[in-house]
């Protein structure tokens, strides 16, 4: 394998890791506040559909992004209502949200566009275009570093850079701000937060809302940057892979970045099975590569190590005892 192929693989890794990373950080905010969210998948899917639909109708991808975030936020609100206000089962609510999105996107897409549950192909301003970073063209000829800068670092859509930027931002918010301290506390011991006079319900709703925004961006990225339009079930389990990455990362932002890049790399490998075969000498089953993240998480955090989530995760907070 030469440098060019390697760079292509890594480039694909970055593109495929982006939606995972956004969804993983989304889950991180929610779960750190004590709200389990297995509805990441559904929120991404809903956002992917509405962003593609609005972008295709208006021809403006930014309006699409806003609409996508709106769709994801609406589902987040349902999740918050069910799991915070009405103290329902957070897991069941997540399952319901996933099915709601899986069904509604196709039903509405069919009704609006009559193209068998997909949106029209997006092009031009209705999509996020790759950005060429400054001096990428000029530095291209520099040996080794030039191609890395040109191929790998430059030439992604703005959402890729945003996702990467959100990792230090999330770290800073969680570990260096008052809001972050309270957010983490409410996931570990909500009663203590309540005693300190801070609203548990407010904090948890804030976390769920942030989760909605990030899932919305992740979904919009899928339909308007990674692909050109919405297709049925296009999130393809990415919400669950993001959940697996979150557990793998033990609910910490920088580790989330590395596990998402690892899982993105596995997806890139599945796409370029020819390269994989050339390097390791035999063909790997593509299906196996697709589920390798899950196998890794089960083996490494189940049998070998241990990953314990926030203590109050999954439990509704009841003030009176």
């Amino acid at each position: 394998m030469d440098l060019a192929t390697l760079l292509q693989m890594l480039d694909a890794t970055l593109r495929l890791a982006t939606p995972l990373l956004l969804a993983c950080l989304a889950g991180l905010y929610s779960e750190r506040a004590g709200i389990f969210d297995i509805g990441l998948e559904g929120k991404m899917l809903a956002a992917a559909f509405l962003s593609a639909a609005i972008a295709s109708v208006t021809g403006n991808v930014w309006l699409g992004l806003v609409a996508g975030i709106g769709a994801s936020m609406a589902l987040s609100l349902i999740h918050g209502l069910a799991s915070i206000t009405f103290r329902g089962n957070q897991l069941i609510s997540g399952v319901a949200i996933n099915f709601l999105a899986a069904g509604l996107t196709v039903v509405v897409a069919q009704s609006w566009f009559s193209q068998g549950g997909r949106t029209p192909q997006l092009s031009g301003d209705a999509r996020f275009e790759p950005i060429t970073l400054p001096f990428a063209e000029q530095l291209r000829e520099v040996p080794f570093l030039g191609p890395i800068y040109y191929e790998l670092i430059s030439g992604h859509t703005i959402l890729v850079y945003l996702a990467l930027l959100l990792v230090p931002v999330t770290w800073w918010v969680l570990y260096r701000t008052r809001f972050g301290l309270r957010l983490r506390a409410v996931g570990e011991n909500p009663a203590a937060v309540d005693t300190a006079g801070v609203s548990v319900v407010g904090l948890r709703f804030a976390a769920v809302a942030i989760c909605g925004v990030l899932c919305g961006i992740a979904g919009a990225y899928l339909a308007t940057a990674l692909q050109a339009g919405f297709t049925k079930d296009m999130s393809a389990g990415r919400g669950y892979i993001a959940l697996a990455a979150l557990i793998f990362a033990k609910w910490r932002p920088w580790y989330a970045l590395s596990s998402c890049i690892l899982f993105g790399f596995l997806q890139a490998m599945a796409l370029r099975s020819d390269v994989v075969e050339e390097v390791i000498g035999f063909a790997l089953n593509g299906q196996l590569l697709d589920v390798l993240p899950f196998i890794l998480v089960v083996v490494l955090t189940g049998f070998v190590g241990k990953a314990t989530g926030p203590k109050a995760g999954g439990q509704a907070y009841v003030k009176e005892r």
């Binding site: 009405f86 329902g88 957070q90 319901a96 949200i97 099915f99 709601l100 069904g103 509604l104």
Partner: peptide
């Protein structure tokens, strides 16, 4: 009709939502 099969998934989701997650909304 022009109603796609996925409508059942929507109904399924609503049943899960109301009988499962939003149980207290009806119960309280």
């Amino acid at each position: 009709t022009s109603i796609p099969r996925e409508l059942i998934i929507v109904i399924q989701a609503l049943v899960i939502l109301f009988t499962g997650a939003l149980d207290n909304m009806v119960r309280m």
